[in-house]
Design a protein around this nucleic acid. Structure first.
Lengths: 345, 345
DNA sequence: CTGAAAGCGCTAACAC
DNA sequence: GTGTTAGCGCTTTCAG
């Protein structure tokens, strides 16, 4: 007899059912099923067989309530559809898979109120830790994080004041470095293209760092464009065409992410523009996907996987007794690819 | 006083704390916080104020145990990193957001044993429903699904026997239709390129349908290649180059997904090949991302968002009392794009 | 409209 | 090694 032959159960099975079927007390059944405490091999075998045969699935709700332990880590991120967060998740999972912990994801769509709501929902399941994107949250959300009594890791960004632990890069610095490198290479008529970023603080910080670096070199943006929605590749193509039409003397275009950058790049290579000689381009993120383009776009890696791994490590360290609020700033190097000169011609 | 000024709580707050702070019984506090039953406006206000001030976050673990209700829907999918499942998730979320239900995602990496484990873990939280990719599962997983006593929707694929509800497309048919269209257009020296698909049943079914359609037209695959891992775009580029080197007289290349297809397409347009005149190409999925390529790849849409929406609707319908096990087969139309002729030259 | 009692299914802490 | 008892924080049910 095995689980397959068990008749569909109307009422979910309980420990008591396994206990009765095996003639072993509920407590010992519980011990066997959790591999805790010493149980004789004979009893263990009896219990396991009974559980299998019935197709028993433990009720974690009850277990969590009784033990006051929930092996879940809440991961709160703005989106799953761009290239960035799936990679962060990969990093988190790779670490948590070695432990008892499991990630549970909540999506905020870059909306602060939704973030607050999602956080509230997740905290009400009493997870063992929280990994949350960004340093900007509503007051209420910050309060919930502080009062949760569990380890909190804010990820992606380190330009600001973490609630507890944090790991990320400085987006302001990434923008600044790109700006500096562009000036150093002798480009002067510079355009910017990015998402409307009222709510995407990291994109905004990159933009601010970029403009600041240009200003320090006595250069102002020659043109700029903010878009929203739509396929990034297509948008990059369209908007690049439009901008080059409007401001034909541009000699560099900085995109707030690699995907619109790639769209622009495809357009420019088709047009047969002289890249990087008389026209340069750069994006941000270092997305793997774009290997395979005819020409590789200059970019700065956002260290997504590394961030995910580190964040998960921080949670694990805390659960193992660490008490400090670590803050880790990663410093990716600019990757010039094929689309920007390194020095003035 | 508000939640922000509340001192960090060491012990999580309980209903009792709110009850004491407001001078209202736990039961009535519970009523207020859940908007159930009639409570006088005065009492309601007192309770809400107290809860806010303390920064109380309800404990869903306890709530779920007591009420035997969990507003979670388990969503079990192979991967989050390709273009396909984020869109399915979007469809699911868009429907569930109108309800009390919340999706919780588990990832299987296309591994049957991992799927079984993830399913077990999720069922142990006693969700209200399960949405799971594919029709192929281990025996134990099938048993768990049957015995769970909750609505189950198997998604993506309808070539097989659903456990309960299902919504998807016929991948075998998709492969067949592409094969037929290619023959109809007069291509004859046909190559195939796809992932190693021992565990990706849908890719395998497309392949089988494709080969079958060619066979019916008296044509055999002229060359084929199965890859694994790596950036799809780059892989598509490399492998296409290699295959065209090896079998230069190919006049069509069918890719098992749009991304490797796009990699191949970029390579072929660079080489200046005559597309679709003397060489045709096609992929599968209809991914939005690729709008923005210089040339659009022929493809068949996998109806990802629609599948997600329908699956969620099915769960909701069940929770509202429906009892039937619906099976919905969507029938996407072939989109020839710019990379295949429609009839023989 | 409000409250008191019972118990959801499991595990911690003790007995034996 | 194994069993017993109490109770996790909430909701159900039933009284008032």
């Amino acid at each position: 007899m095995n689980d397959v032959s068990a008749p569909p159960a109307r009422r979910p099975l309980t420990l008591r059912d396994v206990s009765e079927a095996s003639g072993v007390s509920e407590m010992t059944v519980s011990r066997v099923l959790r591999n805790r405490g010493d149980v004789s091999d004979a009893t263990r075998a009896k219990v396991q067989e009974a559980a299998r045969a019935l197709g028993y699935v433990p009720n974690k709700i009850a277990g969590a309530l009784a033990s006051n332990r929930v092996n879940l880590v809440a991961v709160i991120i703005p989106s799953m559809s761009n290239m960035v967060f799936p990679e962060v998740m990969g990093g988190i999972s790779s670490v948590l898979e070695e432990t008892e912990l499991q990630p549970v994801v909540g999506i905020t769509d870059y909306l602060p109120e939704k973030e607050e709501k999602v956080l509230y929902e997740m905290l009400s399941w009493r997870p063992s830790g929280v990994i949350i994107a960004g340093l900007e949250h509503t007051e209420a959300a910050r309060a919930m994080l502080r009062n949760s009594g569990i380890p909190v890791v804010e990820i992606m960004d380190t330009d600001g004041n973490p609630t507890d632990c944090a790991v990320g890069i400085s987006h302001r610095r990434a923008g600044r470095e790109m700006g500096e490198a562009i000036l150093e290479a002798g480009y002067r008529r510079i355009g910017f293209m990015g998402t409307k970023m009222a709510l995407d603080h990291r994109a905004r910080k990159r933009y601010e760092g970029f403009v600041e670096a240009l200003a320090k070199g006595g250069v102002e943006l020659a043109d700029w464009e903010f878009y929203e929605g739509g396929s990034a590749l297509a948008k990059g193509r369209e908007l690049t065409a439009a901008m080059l039409e409007r401001t034909p003397d541009l000699d560099f275009l900085y995109y707030s992410n690699d995907l619109i950058g790639a769209g622009g790049l495809l357009y420019c290579t088709e047009k047969g523009m002289d890249i990087p000689g008389s026209f340069g381009m750069a994006g941000f993120n270092g997305v793997e996907l774009l290997r395979g383009l005819p020409v590789t776009l200059a970019t700065i890696d956002s260290c997504r996987r590394e961030i995910g791994r580190t964040a998960a490590d921080m949670i694990v360290a805390r659960m193992e007794g660490a008490t400090s609020s670590e803050v880790v700033t990663l410093t990716p190097k600019l990757q010039p690819g094929d689309t920007m000169r390194l020095s003035a011609p």
